[in-house]
Design a binder for these strands. Structure first.
Length: 275
DNA sequence: AAAAGACCCAACCGCCAAAGT
DNA sequence: GACTTTGGCGGTTGGGTCTTT
């Protein structure tokens, strides 16, 4: 009894001794050095052995979300956005599962993306992020538009390549001999950087995610999009649980939206692509 | 230029399941 | 089989940064 009380007191001492909050550069280096030498795992003992005044959980999180060499930083690309929307529609808030299909992205990052961007738009549309109308808006409006933009970007990138190629020919410089392909043209612009990621991610997607109704089918279904935008009748008629957006239940939504030629619906949609 | 509000993201928390003792 | 430890997950928060007024 006395021993257990002593032990508890020691634990409390150790607990109060632990650091919290943002990691310092020194802590990061210590953690990275230790993991490089000894590998990861057994996080509590790792934290002690490394001399870090952090608990194991904190070390693990810091490593997985920030220090890991393969963590990818920077803006979520269009392809990644599309993939997140698609995968979330399948699995809901299974962030770690979704993250498996976005190499280098952490579940935390995807979760943050969803909460800050996607949920914001649901709020602007005045509907719940889990509601059918928001899901339909995503599926039949935003996702096809994203796919269109991805395609446009890819075409634009190909044209850029052709132009570069022609310039090479015109100047008799010739192309670099190292099997350069359209998708490996590198420039300093972020646009090109994004486009480069398109093919990588697409490849990865197909390799790891061999589903029949690939997200990239959205780009082929323009009639559906036209129909959706033109008549504002839900294309979910094609689904088993189709919703008719002219039905009484949903009139309220469009009433709120007002004149469709200049309503929040389209404005929000535009904003979506400015993210 | 400054204050207020919105946005973003790293980090923490609590819970649960699996593994270890 | 009971208990403890560890790892992993999703939800939430705090504070720094950016934007708007």
């Amino acid at each position: 009894m006395i021993n257990s009380m002593k032990s508890e007191a020691n634990d409390q001492d150790l607990e109060s001794d632990l650091r919290r909050g943002p990691w310092t550069v020194e802590e990061d280096i210590t953690l990275m050095d230790f993991i490089t030498k000894h590998g990861e795992g057994r996080w509590n003992s790792l934290a002690r052995s490394a001399g870090l005044k952090r608990n194991g959980k904190s070390c693990r999180l810091r490593w997985l979300n920030y220090l890991r060499p393969d963590v990818r930083r920077g803006n979520i690309t269009l392809e990644e956005q599309l993939l997140i929307l698609e995968l979330h529609s399948r699995w809901g808030n299974r962030w770690s599962k979704i993250a498996q299909y976005l190499p280098g992205r952490t579940d935390n990052e995807i979760k943050n993306y969803w909460r800050t961007r996607v949920q914001k738009h649901a709020k602007q549309l005045n509907c719940d992020v889990n509601s059918n109308k928001f899901k339909d808006t995503m599926r039949y409006l935003w996702m096809p538009r994203l796919a269109e933009r991805i395609q446009a970007q890819a075409i634009n990138n190909t044209n850029k390549f052709s132009s570069i190629n022609m310039n090479y020919e015109n100047t008799n410089i010739g192309m670099p001999s190292i099997g350069m392909q359209a998708n490996s043209v590198t420039t300093a612009s972020s646009e090109s950087f994004e486009s480069n990621q398109v093919s990588d991610l697409t490849d990865n997607y197909y390799n790891n995610y061999p589903l029949n109704d690939s997200i990239f089918n959205y780009s082929c279904n323009e009639d559906r999009v036209e129909n959706y935008q033109g008549s504002l009748v839900s294309p979910s008629d094609n689904l088993n649980n189709g919703l008719d957006f002219h039905a009484t239940d949903n009139n309220q939504w469009f009433d709120q939206l007002g004149d469709t030629s200049d309503n929040i619906f389209w404005n929000v949609e535009d904003n979506w692509f400015l993210m």
